[in-house]
């Protein structure tokens, strides 16, 4: 989980640098502009205009302290403002990619996809929203791929889609049996390799077991005469299935996500 701290550190540095450059640009702009103004109209001219109008004179005298204050504190205030902006931007950005990473499930497989998405956002930090949208779309395409991946593996290794597509009524049982043997063997092998299925409750079916309080309703389904409070005593009717391992493949974003198996063309 050291992805988030490392990402936020590097993005803070970049944000700081960008805002520093901005601050310098603004400061320099104002400095040059004011110098330009005083180059064409000298200070003496202004004083002369002011001295001719008594109203103006009194106003200037009242506000001299204010002008001095602005002159001395303008640049520090600008720097402070920029620092504050850096901090706010950073916090917004950090919250943003924390959410994205959590959604994509932080593991080795997502490392590849999460990083470029975050990097892209860092570059376009000025306008955050448009940057997040393509990442979201990419993720959506990727979930489509993940959804179809297992069936694509089963087709690749066991021809399962071809089998589902067959009209079984056209064939004799013996013919079907011959084909199924091979499909069953290969699909079973593929399933075993990819998700290593295991029983949720590894006890013989028909055995009396006790379900303790605080059981996970997703893992154990109670049927029949369910009354009272746990622990429940009952007979194990189905052992259930769970994945013994779940290693998500890395699927690249390019290519049509709806492809399950490619068409084959033999070049003669």
């Amino acid at each position: 989980m050291n992805l988030i701290p490392s990402l936020s550190r590097s993005s803070l540095l970049r944000l700081f640098l960008v805002n520093l450059i901005f601050g310098c640009l603004i400061g320099a702009g104002i400095w040059f502009a004011s110098r330009e103004v005083f180059a064409t109209v000298s200070f003496a001219d202004i004083l002369e205009v002011i001295s001719q109008d008594p109203d103006m004179q009194s106003w200037v005298q009242k506000n001299t302290r204010g002008f001095d204050l602005i002159q001395t504190w303008f640049y520090p205030a600008l720097a402070g403002l920029m620092l504050l902006m850096t901090l706010i931007q950073w916090m917004l950005l950090r919250g943003g990619f924390k959410r994205v990473i959590r959604k994509s499930g932080i593991d080795a497989a997502s490392r590849k996809t999460a990083k470029p998405a975050a990097a892209k956002k860092k570059e376009k930090q000025e306008d955050e929203k448009p940057a997040r949208e393509p990442a979201g779309r990419e993720q959506k395409e990727e979930s489509k791929r993940y959804y179809l991946h297992l069936i694509s593996v089963l087709q690749r290794q066991g021809r399962l889609m071809d089998f589902f597509h067959e009209d079984l009524s056209a064939f004799q049982d013996a013919q079907i049996g011959a084909a199924v043997r091979s499909i069953h063997e290969n699909c079973a092998g593929a399933v075993k390799k990819t998700i290593a299925p295991a029983a949720v409750i590894d006890k013989p079916e028909g055995r009396e077991i006790s379900v303790p309080a605080g059981f996970d309703p997703a893992a154990i389904k109670l049927t029949g005469n369910v009354t009272g409070e746990p622990p429940f005593n009952g007979v194990l009717r189905h052992r259930g299935w769970k994945a013994g391992r779940l290693e998500l493949p890395v699927l690249s974003a390019s290519g049509d996500p709806l492809i399950i198996a490619p068409a084959e063309v033999e070049i003669q």
Binding site: R159, D162, F163, H165, L168, Q175, A178, A179, S182
Partner: peptide, 18 residues
Amino acid sequence: WPVTILGRGSSLIGNTLK
């Protein structure tokens, strides 16, 4: 021991050799 060669393409069962 059964040895099966599945049919190519979509005619999986029809062309299966056993």
